[in-house]
Amino acid sequence: MTTRLDKRFAALKAEGRAGLVTFTMAGDPGHDASLEILKALPKAGADVLELGMPFTDPMADGPPIQASGLRALKGGETLRRTLDLVHAFRATDSDTPLILMGYYNPIYVYGVDAFLNDALAAGVDGLIVVDLPPEEDAELCVPALKAGLNFIRLATPTTDDARLPAVLANTSGFVYYVSVTGITGAATPDFDAVSAAVARIKRHTDLPVAVGFGVKTRDHARAVARGADAVVVGSALVEAVRKSLDKDGAATEKTVPAVTELVRELAEGVRSARPVAAE
């Protein structure tokens, strides 16, 4: 089965460049504004969209994404509304792959079968669920794959060669390499170590490898894009959202441009990483 993600990564490979994966939070800053942001991202240079499902207790996220999720929840975002958001986005864009990222509890409470049905109907392509390691594959991963969604797993610096096969076994779409041991938005990775790690993962799989955590600027993005198939940026984008808000925390006319300008810069970094006439 070829999914939107598979097609997009095949196209990137044909172009000879890495992709840019953007993370933004559903419902931040407000449901409608987050839809406007989502719609503007592909034009600004995003190749794959990651949409956060807000959760009260995001144990692997640093302060920027924690705060973004809390803003969304305060604005009344729910998992049902997030699926509506995807549906509305899909009405305007049928090509750009979109994956939902978050934690298991809201999905578990929604009901796994109902969630998978509704996510597919809304036009979701894949899922990243931070607190579902391979040991818990029976919960959501296996049913999601059966339903035709990609299930993207995180590999980390602590995932050694012995463990990698287990992590990769039920992974599809791409592998998300977390470049630091830590939470989102904290340390900047050591870029040489990242290249080596990507090479190590590629010895175990033919899937594309995206690298994230700690990428904030055009230069970071360029450095990571030399070795990776895609670069993921999240905390820097939700920080751009936060800085654009008025004193009551509402979106302003600066909000969408603040995000798209940064995405443009990051996309430039990603696109200039490899010389066109390589070899």
Binding site: D131, P133, E136, L154, T156, D160
Partner: peptide
């Protein structure tokens, strides 16, 4: 019960 944690923690 179970082990619902991020991959970074699984080896630990």
């Amino acid at each position: 019960g179970g082990r619902f944690v991020a991959e970074t923690l699984m080896p630990n």
